[in-house]
C-alpha cells in the first residue's frame, strides 16, 4: 500500500511541474526610441561615454548603438577634449582623465537629441587601518572579512559603494584539474555587523548581495569604520582556488548613487513574477542612463 501511494505521488509530482506556452504579443507600433547614455567618469581612466537607443522588448538585436554623435568634454568651463567614436556607440578620450575635486561637463550632440550634463569629481579616496580576518558569521559559514576606515570630506554630500572582487582558478572536476583561465567576479558581500550603518541606512541593501550602497549622512566630514566580507573563501576539496580578494570602496556623486540604487531595485523585482519594477534613476534629459563621477580605493589580499 505504501509503495502504491509512493508511485502515485511521484507521478503526480512529475505532472505538476511548471508548463509554458507562447502567446502572441505585439507592442505599440508607435514606439519611438529614446537615447541611452552612460558616462562613468573616474580619475583612474580616460573619459568614455557610451550612447545607445532604447529598443522594443522583442527586438532581436542586443543593443542599438548611436554612431553619429559628437561628444565634448569641458573642465571648469574650458573644452578639454572631443571624444572620438570607437564604434558600437562608444566615444572616448585617448589620454585624458578627469581630476579629483574638479567640475566638468559632458555635451552630447546628435540629430535626434542634444544635452549637456555637468558633474563634480569627488575628492580622492583613501582606505586606512585595513586588515583582514576570517570569522564565523550568521546565518551560516565563515566570513572572510576586510576591516577598514575612511575619512569623509566635509564639503559635499557623498555616497559610497562597496564590493569585493574575487579572482580564482576554476577546477574542471573534483580531481583538481586546473582551468587555464584566471577568472574574476564580484562575490556576495556582507557587513560583519548586521546592524552596520552601511547596511541599515539603505533598505535596498537587503535585496543586493553583490554591493553595499550607503550615503555619508551619519559621518559627513568624519570617520567611518566598518568590516565587510564574503563567504567565498578557498576551501580544500572545492571547485576553485582563490588567488586574491580585493575590497573596492567607491565614493560617487548623487546621480551615480541613485542610478546604482534604483538599478539594483529594478533588477531585484525583475525576478518577481508579480513584481512592479520601477524606473531606474537617470540624469539624461528625455532618455535613460547616467553621467556620473566617482573615485575609488581598494585593498588587495593575495592567497599564498
Amino acid at each position: 500500500m505504501v509503495k502504491f501511494w509512493q508511485i502515485c505521488s511521484l507521478l503526480l509530482l512529475g505532472m505538476a511541474g511548471a508548463c509554458t506556452r507562447e502567446i502572441p504579443f505585439a507592442p505599440d507600433n508607435g514606439f519611438e526610441p529614446r537615447p541611452v547614455v552612460y558616462g562613468f567618469l573616474c580619475p583612474d581612466s580616460p573619459v568614455s561615454v557610451q550612447i545607445w537607443k532604447t529598443q522594443s522588448i522583442i527586438a532581436p538585436e542586443a543593443t542599438a548603438p548611436v554612431a553619429n554623435a559628437v561628444v565634448n568634454w569641458f573642465t571648469e568651463g574650458f573644452i578639454t577634449d572631443v571624444l572620438l567614436g570607437k564604434g558600437r556607440g562608444r566615444y572616448a578620450s585617448l589620454l585624458n582623465a578627469p581630476a579629483s575635486g574638479k567640475r566638468g561637463e559632458i555635451v552630447v550632440l546628435n540629430s535626434d537629441f542634444n544635452f549637456r550634463r555637468s558633474f563634480r569629481m569627488p575628492d580622492a579616496l583613501q582606505l586606512a587601518e585595513t586588515d583582514t580576518f576570517t570569522a564565523l558569521f550568521p546565518p551560516g559559514g565563515a566570513l572572510f572579512t576586510f576591516r577598514f576606515r575612511i575619512t569623509d570630506p566635509d564639503s559635499t554630500a557623498d555616497f559610497y559603494r562597496l564590493y569585493i572582487q574575487h579572482t580564482f582558478y576554476a577546477y574542471r572536476d573534483s580531481a583538481g584539474l586546473r582551468d587555464s583561465a584566471l577568472r574574476s567576479e564580484k562575490v556576495d558581500i556582507r557587513a560583519y555587523d548586521p546592524t552596520d550603518y552601511a547596511v541599515a541606512s539603505n533598505p535596498a541593501n537587503r535585496l543586493n548581495r553583490r554591493e553595499i550602497l550607503f550615503p555619508d549622512t551619519e559621518f559627513n566630514g568624519g570617520t567611518y569604520r566598518s568590516a565587510v566580507g564574503t563567504f567565498r573563501i578557498p576551501q580544500a576539496g572545492k571547485t576553485y582556488r582563490t588567488t586574491s580578494m580585493r575590497l573596492v570602496v567607491e565614493r560617487c556623486d548623487e546621480a551615480l548613487y541613485r542610478y546604482y540604487n534604483t538599478r539594483m531595485l529594478h533588477l531585484a523585482q525583475q525576478g518577481n513574477p508579480a513584481g512592479q519594477p520601477g524606473p531606474v534613476s537617470s540624469n539624461i534629459p528625455g532618455g535613460f542612463g547616467v553621467i556620473g563621477a566617482y573615485t575609488q580605493a581598494s585593498k588587495l589580499y593575495r592567497w599564498p
Binding site: V36, W52, S56, I57, V248, R263, G289
Partner: peptide, 18 residues
C-alpha cells in the same frame, strides 16, 4: 514594452525593462 542596457563601471550591462 521597451528595454535598454544598464551597465556598471565594473560589470557588463544588464537589461532594464521600461
Amino acid at each position: 514594452l521597451e528595454r535598454y542596457p544598464a551597465p556598471l563601471p565594473d560589470e557588463p550591462f544588464r537589461e532594464i525593462f521600461i
